[in-house]
Nucleic acid binder design. Structure first.
Lengths: 202, 202
DNA sequence: TATTTTTTTAACCAAATGGTTAAAAAAATA
DNA sequence: TATTTTTTTAACCATTTGGTTAAAAAAATA
């Protein structure tokens, strides 16, 4: 008797991810999460004390999946263009698997920005960012790329990688009409990297 | 006796914009909106029947400020690079004045995507999009720009223009540490346009 | 089969919140 | 000043919702 228990807890987490992403912490209803997980409210509370704790677990788990490898990519010693490709690929891979992460972050960042910052610090993202910023400045100095503020370049890469997922419900209909945007996003990573590199290379 | 009345209603709308953007429709509290507007809850309900109606008004007003000129820029006959500059500038100008719009749209799009689509249709954005997509295809054919899917190019422009505002609370601290990101965003429009043009031009 | 764990049922509570109301007070207007 | 509109006060209601509880039932395990 443990197998069923684990399965139920996993069902709860899966349901919670969807509901929290769609409705945010305030908009999510425990009853709705329970329904989606195929259980009742009493059992939901049996496994997770309260909504905040459940949200925290879902949120922290998701964010770490994003941040941990990102820190690694930022900190490693690849050449700049390769690093850009790595980071684009990382964003796309994680967001295809966990498309709810950006909505989480955006909603939470208005509530408690310090918390995410702290996680970024713990996971080494801040450290990695400094290293990459330095690398970009060096590339500018040595004439490999056009002059650009490292922060701006990083922001552009993240914007191009993340925003399509954030805006997907709208973009899918506005831009891609009936087409399946999932396929577009799956193959987008390389095109984003090329777009960025094309823009900065000399 | 009308002057004070108008002023109060405007105070309510200003307060509502901030609160709705920060907390979304579900997370916003009428009491909090009343407090921020410097009035009490009874008066708030005296002017706006209920939360949904208030939200609708704030939301539709804001969205039209975004969509109406966008449709015009998309539909006009400027040469492609100039059009890209116009659109970047438009996004940045509106978002500097109404930075809450993207959060509105993102939250609402999960609730009722059809509604925004309808507004886009009414305001002529869909029509303008088609025209611009055609123009991009022509520019590719005549060798003015590298091959790119028009939808992808449009998505990239929007991503680069909008995402920094969406992610501002985080980016401000993660990337720009203590610096004022407001200044960065104010001057970003031209840099985004250059970034895009540099990437596609031959 | 006996035991333990998981799940359901169902009723219940407290707090938060959207919304109402009526009367008084304050402010603007004529 | 008389009248009308705006605003406050303050009490109140209904609903939603997060959360609890206790007992029974079902399922897994030993």
């Amino acid at each position: 008797m443990e197998k069923k228990s684990v399965e139920t807890q996993e069902n709860i987490l899966i349901a919670a991810r969807t509901i929290f992403a769609q409705k945010g912490l305030a908009g999510a209803r425990m009853q709705e999460i329970a329904d989606r997980a195929g259980i009742n409210k009493a059992l939901l509370h049996y496994y997770y004390r309260n909504k905040e704790k459940l949200f925290e677990q879902v949120f922290d788990e998701a964010l770490k999946k994003m941040l941990r490898p990102l820190a690694a990519f930022l900190a490693d010693d690849s050449e700049l263009f390769q690093k850009i490709r790595n980071i684009c690929k990382h964003y796309h891979e994680v967001l295809i698997e966990y498309p709810f992460i950006p909505n989480f972050v955006i909603n939470e960042v208005n509530t408690d920005p310090a918390r995410i910052l702290k996680l970024m610090d713990i996971e080494g993202v801040l450290e990695g960012k400094k290293k990459t910023a330095f690398q970009i400045n060096e590339a500018v100095k040595s004439g490999i790329i056009r002059p650009i503020d490292p922060r701006e370049l990083i922001l552009n890469i993240i914007s191009l990688s993340v925003f399509p997922f954030v805006s997907r419900p709208l973009s899918e209909k506005f831009l891609y009409e009936n087409e399946d945007m999932g396929e577009v996003l799956k193959s987008r990573s390389d095109r984003v990297a090329d777009f960025v590199i094309q823009s900065i290379k000399i």
